[in-house]
């Protein structure tokens, strides 16, 4: 049992991690807690669903044992682009203007209002019923026999989610440590004025931050849709775990966000047999309070 919960927690944790990377980057670079980030996750999932309706005709074969094929990958790409576009639009119309007014909390409040509007628009457009990318039933493969601590089973889709997340995390790490844009993002997070002096176009870095953050959120949304289901409240339900992961890892640390995401996911999963599946989200809250009491800068935080 315990191994199975760890494995389930890892899958959930990698979805949280993908969402949390974007949230921690926007938090550090734009300096506000974006309550609309969960809606990027939801939008990503629904936009991919919409796109899937168009791309389904391309091919009906799936990748080996997976539940999906090229059409879903094409839809994922479309969802990433469209969600990034949504984030840029929101920044242009709302966040940038509120930020200019100089009251930091006005931006947070605006993101709260935007989240509400976006979530309810989706509900209006798609209704509240859960939806799926594929109705096909996936057989969970035994990875470890029952004799080893209860064994581990996972569906091919879950394994694909883990694999792609690992690749994305490595890519993000290389990007932030090696690429000029990645380093510029770290520089802007540390000191925007000094970044300007150094010749960095801070506005452009901010735009890229939205694109990358929202793009990763869209991937998280599609993965959540693939392994769980697609609902208008999926992003709202993820928001607390996302914030817990970001603060646990230390604001501004993508590596910390990944680790924080995995910790939150596994903790939620391990808590299920103790307190029941209903209280999953409460686990994230307890972790959040705990880390604020013990080490408010998080595990890898650079500033509080």
């Amino acid at each position: 049992m315990i191994l199975q919960q760890l494995a389930d927690g890892l899958v959930l944790g990698s979805i949280i991690a993908l969402g949390a990377i974007g949230l921690t980057l926007t938090y550090a670079i734009l300096r506000f807690a974006n309550f609309a980030h969960g809606e990027f996750v939801t939008f990503g999932a629904y936009l991919a669903l919409l796109a899937l309706g168009q791309f389904q005709v391309l091919s009906t074969t799936t990748f080996g044992p997976l539940s999906f094929g090229w059409p879903l990958l094409a839809s994922l790409a479309a969802a990433i682009l469209a969600t990034a576009g949504l984030a840029l639009l929101l920044d242009r119309l709302l966040f940038a203007r509120l930020g200019r007014a100089g009251v930091a909390i006005a931006v947070v409040m605006g993101s709260f209002g935007a989240a509400l509007a976006l979530r309810n628009l989706l509900f209006f457009a798609f209704g509240g019923e859960p939806q799926y990318y594929s109705r096909a039933i996936q057989i969970a493969l035994p990875l470890l026999p029952r004799s080893v601590l209860g064994g581990v089973r996972a569906t091919p889709d879950q394994l694909a989610v883990l694999g792609v997340t690992a690749l994305l995390v490595i890519a993000m790490h290389l990007f932030l440590s090696r690429a000029t844009l990645g380093r510029a993002m770290r520089a802007v997070a540390h000191n925007p004025q000094l970044a300007t002096v150094t010749g960095i176009d801070v506005a452009a870095v901010v735009r890229w931050t939205w694109i990358i953050g929202a793009g990763l959120a869209a991937v998280a949304g599609v993965f959540a849709g693939l392994t769980v289901q697609i609902r208008p409240t999926m992003g709202l339900d993820l928001l607390l775990p996302l914030f817990a992961a970001v603060i646990l890892g230390g604001i501004g640390s993508p590596f910390g966000a990944v680790l924080g995401g995995l910790i939150v996911g596994i903790a939620e999963s391990l808590a299920v047999p103790l307190v029941g599946a209903e209280y999953r989200a409460a686990v994230a809250f307890l972790l959040l309070i705990l880390i604020l009491l013990v080490r408010p800068t998080g595990l890898f935080g650079e500033r509080g």
Partner: peptide
Amino acid sequence: TENVFANL
């Protein structure tokens, strides 16, 4: 002041 990127 603050004239280097301390995190780099």
